[in-house]
Amino acid sequence: MHDLLADLHLSESSLRFALNLLFALLILVVGFWVAARVANVVQRALQRASVDPTLSGFLRNLVYGVLIALLVVTALIQAGVPQAPLAAALGASGLAIGLALQGSLSNLAWGVLLIIFRPFRVGDLVTVGGIDGTVEGISLMYTRLLLADNREAVVPNGKIGADAIINFNQRGMRRFELKVGIGYKDDIGRAMAEIRQLFEADARILKDPAPGVWTVNLGDSSVDLVVRAWSRTDDLWAAQTDLLRAIKERFDEQGISIPFPQRELTVVQGTLPAGTPPQA
């Protein structure tokens, strides 16, 4: 009789375990389907809200991953795995993964922030992480820059977030500065007037903010003028270099000198004192 009761109890336990395992598998099958549908709904909602495709894809995968994690935990509990050891194992695993991926998680977090707050966009000329370049692509982990000499730099987003970000395109226009020296015998007012005429002649130089020219220094061999003007960001390099050339050509036409450093030597002729040995 005792053996019969034991066999019945064992059969009941086996049946309960089989049912729990079946329910756990059912939870997984249905749960995977529901998680995929919920994640897709979230992604479509973000796309309708005009959220960046990279960010919407990341958030879709994040929602899906969280749902799958909860699904697996629920299935394990339903299958009869004790909750306390399971919670301890999950906590230890999460801590180990977090420590191992500390740098990657930092890059990921900054990637999300860069996509949300948009301090720069693809095509902008920037200085990030101490590197100057044009933004070619922004991902969740890295930002790709095209350098002036056609090299490509891949900068971790964590490094970008930990440093200053300088965006040269954000305002749409920039100021450039030139320094020009004229001779001490030249008319300063006339030189300034000639430069102002060049401002008016170049449509790429903006009139608001107004350009200007000032006297900034009396050097060893020249009176130094500083020229400051504004242009659209796309026209900056051409406007700056063309204006510098135009100033040189205009000064040459008007006889205004641009001196270069030089020294004047004064030779004094006379009779050497008696007894002075001749110099070699």
Rank of each mutant, 00 (worst) to 15 (best):
P209H: 05
I182Q: 00
I165E: 04
K179N: 10
I166G: 02
I182Y: 06
D224L: 11
Y184H: 02
A162T: 04
I205H: 11
E200P: 02
E200D: 15
I205G: 09
I195E: 01
I166L: 11
E200H: 12
A210C: 09
R174C: 07
E200A: 10
D187F: 02
G172Q: 01
G161V: 11
G161Q: 07
V216L: 08
I188Y: 05
A203C: 09
V223S: 11
L218V: 13
I188M: 05
A162C: 04
G189D: 14
G172K: 00
A164P: 09
N169M: 11
G172T: 05
R204K: 08
A162K: 01
V223D: 10
S222T: 04
L206V: 09
A201H: 02
E200Y: 10
L218T: 14
Q197Y: 08
W214G: 04
F168D: 00
N217D: 15
I205Y: 09
F176H: 11
L178V: 03
A193G: 06
K179L: 06
L198T: 08
N217K: 15
N217W: 12
W214A: 09
D187Q: 01
R174S: 09
K207Q: 15
N167D: 03
Y184E: 05
I166F: 03
Y184S: 05
V223R: 14
W214F: 13
L225S: 00
F199Y: 11
N167F: 08
E194G: 11
N167R: 03
V180C: 06
G181P: 07
D208N: 15
T215P: 03
V216Q: 08
M173W: 07
G219A: 14
D220N: 14
I205K: 13
I165A: 02
L178I: 05
K185Q: 12
M192P: 06
L218D: 14
I195F: 05
G161R: 01
F176M: 05
S222Y: 01
D220V: 13
G183T: 01
A164K: 13
F199N: 09
L225C: 07
R204G: 03
L178W: 01
K207L: 13
E177N: 11
Y184K: 02
A191N: 01
G219L: 10
I166A: 04
A164H: 11
N167S: 10
E194H: 10
E194K: 03
R196N: 13
D224N: 12
A191D: 01
M173K: 10
R175E: 13
L206C: 09
A162W: 03
R196L: 07
A191G: 00
D220A: 15
R196Q: 12
I166P: 00
Q170G: 08
E177D: 11
A203K: 14
I166C: 04
I205N: 12
A191Q: 00
V223Y: 09
I205D: 12
K207R: 15
R204C: 00
D186Q: 01
K185A: 12
E177C: 02
D163T: 15
G172I: 08
D163V: 12
A191W: 00
L218I: 13
L178P: 06
K179D: 10
I205W: 08
I205L: 06
D187R: 02
W214K: 12
K179Y: 09
D224T: 07
R171T: 14
Q170C: 11
A210F: 06
I166M: 07
E200V: 02
E194Q: 10
R190Y: 04
D220R: 13
V216C: 08
